[in-house]
Computed example of a mutant assay.
Amino acid sequence: DDLLIDVFPVATGRLPHYTPEGNWQVVSKLVYPAWRPPGGGALIPGGIPANPLGPRWLGLNALGTAGSSYGIHGNNSPYSIGTYASSGCIRMYNEDILWLYEHVPIGTNVQIVSTGQDLQSLKKYNQVYINGVRQEFASCLGPLQSGDTTYLSLRNLAPILGCRLTWESSSNSLIIANIDSEVQLTIGKNTVTANNTAYETKDAPILLEDTTYIPDYYLRDFFGAVFLAEENKTLKIDLPISPIGINLVKHHFQLSINDKEVCLPESCTPLIEDENLLVPLRPLCAATGAEIEWNANQQSVEVKTKGRLLSIPVDGSNAMFNNDILTQQTHIFIHNGTAFISLDFLRKLLCWEAEVDYSTRTLKITYTKRARIATRILPPIQMSLRAV
């Protein structure tokens, strides 16, 4: 698939024609292969220092052979790697052949060509720094290269982005979500949905070794990354850092209130923290007929419905319901000027019925009677409390 995974140093034939050029296949695989000198002599068992084949053998059907004459193997003379030293085989460092052996099945195509090109030049980057920290990738698995596109492992990126990775079986897609973005992608598909908007991309995500890789420019387009100057085959990226201690992630729903669809602005997309669903306080209360007022004396938000008064202090202390102190803990969480609160807390106290279906992404709220809406703007100080 024209995906460059890594470039390995090797040793080839002492003379140009010793290592046969052409298109061949891997036809045999051996662990600690035995070796007999080409000129004849006793068979040398595998796994001993005198055996020059090292720990693994990938036999090729080169020149009509059956995989026992030409092969890719390890060595007992590491100083020879990078030179013309063999009788026709391709030598590798032992740690490299161990990795290659596990990742190359029988039947794999192998092309041997003579070229003056430095194959390391095919790799666009050897190192990746994110927010000044060098990224450690799994052995020989990153960064990957396909043409001019560099692929990075989501396993490395998710903790930095503060993202939760979720497999959504209903759509056969991967959800990457943090407090500011919810991105949905499918392996091998060029359509990416970010915050409920679909985009067509030049390259699709890929799956390798049970790890999802995304094109590096996804970070810029969907997560606000800034690409810094590239030098010495080093890619440097600055990523927005998720606030420490904040485990909230966006989760888009199709919201209906009393069977009427309600469209929330993107800034009011509900948030999830473990099993707790936080909803935007003002638009939901307004849509269900509740009044919202700011009590400057008590430094609290007051939610009023017919016959009910809920007072929620912004300092996190216990809320009050009809002047009774509640033992159930809750607090208002404010992000980018939008106040969020637990749906479970609201529905119990305001007598809402709420049905949440995460698989179909639907949130249905029903209430009995709409009261007069009288919304007041909270003072500026309220917007800065508990903000991130």
Rank of each mutant, 00 (worst) to 15 (best):
H73N: 03
P240R: 02
K233E: 04
N195F: 07
F340G: 08
T360F: 13
F8P: 02
K304S: 11
L281H: 06
I160M: 10
I332D: 04
V26L: 14
I112R: 01
V249M: 03
V128R: 06
Y218G: 08
G39L: 12
L284R: 09
G22W: 01
I241S: 15
P283F: 07
W99Q: 09
N156E: 09
I241M: 12
E230Y: 03
P270M: 04
L100Q: 04
P265Y: 07
G46P: 00
H17Y: 13
N156Q: 09
T166Y: 13
N109E: 14
Q382I: 07
L343H: 02
D216H: 15
E182N: 02
Y84A: 14
Q184K: 15
I187S: 08
N297P: 00
G107A: 05
P143Q: 04
T366N: 11
V262Y: 06
A66N: 14
H252Y: 11
N323T: 14
T362W: 03
A290M: 06
D148K: 09
G74A: 10
H331G: 11
I187N: 11
L53N: 06
L98T: 15
G74V: 03
G316F: 10
F321C: 10
E293K: 09
E95H: 13
Q298N: 14
K124D: 07
P380A: 12
E291Q: 15
G22K: 09
F227T: 09
Q299H: 05
G188L: 02
V356F: 04
S121P: 00
I365W: 12
G47I: 03
L271K: 01
T12F: 05
S173C: 09
T338Q: 05
Y129S: 02
N178C: 11
A204N: 05
S68Y: 10
T115Y: 05
Q298K: 15
T366R: 14
A11W: 02
T150S: 10
M320A: 15
L277H: 04
I44C: 07
P379L: 10
L174P: 00
G47Q: 05
V183M: 13
N232S: 06
T366V: 10
P243H: 04
E353C: 03
R386S: 12
S80N: 06
V128W: 01
G39N: 13
Y358E: 05
P9Q: 13
G142A: 06
L60P: 01
T191S: 11
Y199K: 00
T166H: 14
D148E: 12
T197K: 12
K304I: 14
T327P: 00
S317E: 02
I377G: 11
V133N: 14
G162H: 02
L264H: 03
K124C: 05
G245N: 08
I377P: 00
I214G: 03
